[in-house]
């Protein structure tokens, strides 16, 4: 059977898997971004060059440590991480979302840290000089200015997660990976190839949906004064 008629006959199933894939990634990204951005806000030093062992210096060290650990997590092969999580979360969606969340941490964290700390020194100094407290500076000045960079980190994390989510089928995770897995197990049967093909390329479609979503979010949330 050719691809077109396969899609026509199995539109419902394919859409269902696509939707699962999208949702699983969405939840993981929402969770991972919240954790990463919140953490980055907490550990952003109030000063650019803090004194040794001051609170700001310690925060900076914690931040650098978190970057190293999350970067290391990203190098762990997805199947290995999934099976390591199995005893904790069991087969299925919980393990999948947890793994995808872990993989999303680094990109968002790195971009949050970079965005928050690259805010122009003059802007920060005048914010301070006008009597803005640390929290107000962080929320009213640094976060909005860092937001485009953070959003870009979320985009990259999403692309990574869309690809990795396909592997989650191996631990009974939801999503397009199920199609690949089914096709693989039915090697030689009718439509086995189409299933693998749709499962693989479907990820690109899911990624495209996210890209459109982020373009809209960017349009709505990036302040007009810093839009390029």
């Amino acid at each position: 059977m050719d691809l077109i008629s396969y899609l026509r006959e199995n539109a419902g199933t394919v859409l269902l898997y696509g939707e699962q894939h999208l949702l699983v990634v969405f939840f993981a990204i929402a969770l991972g971004s919240t954790i990463s951005i919140g953490f980055a806000l907490l550990v952003t030093p109030g000063e650019a060059a803090p004194q040794r062992w001051s609170l700001d210096w310690i925060l900076g060290a914690i931040r650098d440590g978190a970057l190293l650990v999350t970067a290391a997590a990203l190098t762990v092969p997805s199947l290995a991480l999934l099976v390591l999580l199995l005893p904790l979360f069991g087969l299925g969606a919980a393990t999948t979302v947890t793994a995808l969340t872990i993989y999303s941490l680094y990109s968002v964290l790195r971009n949050s840290v970079a965005g928050l700390s690259s805010v122009d020194a003059g802007v920060l100094e005048s914010a301070k000089g006008l009597g803005m407290g640390r929290l107000r500076r962080l929320i009213r000045v640094q976060l909005p200015l860092a937001w485009p960079v953070i959003l870009n980190g979320i985009r990259v994390a999403t692309l990574i997660d869309v690809a990795i989510a396909a592997v989650a089928a191996l631990v009974r995770g939801p999503g397009l990976g199920q199609l690949v897995l089914t096709g693989l197990s039915r090697y030689g049967a009718a439509n086995a190839f189409n299933q693998v093909l749709v499962g693989t390329l479907g990820c690109l479609v899911v990624a495209a949906v996210f890209e459109i979503f982020y373009a809209i979010v960017e349009r709505l949330t990036v302040p007009r004064g810093i839009r390029v």
């Binding site: 003059g122 100094e125 000089g129 006008l130 009597g131 200015l145 302040p223 007009r224």
Partner: peptide
């Protein structure tokens, strides 16, 4: 912070908030 609100401060880099009008 209270003190600084009672003192105007202008620097060479100006430091206007780019996301504010």
């Amino acid at each position: 912070d209270q003190l600084r609100r009672r003192i105007g401060y202008v620097i060479q880099q100006v430091g206007l908030f780019p996301h504010f009008t």
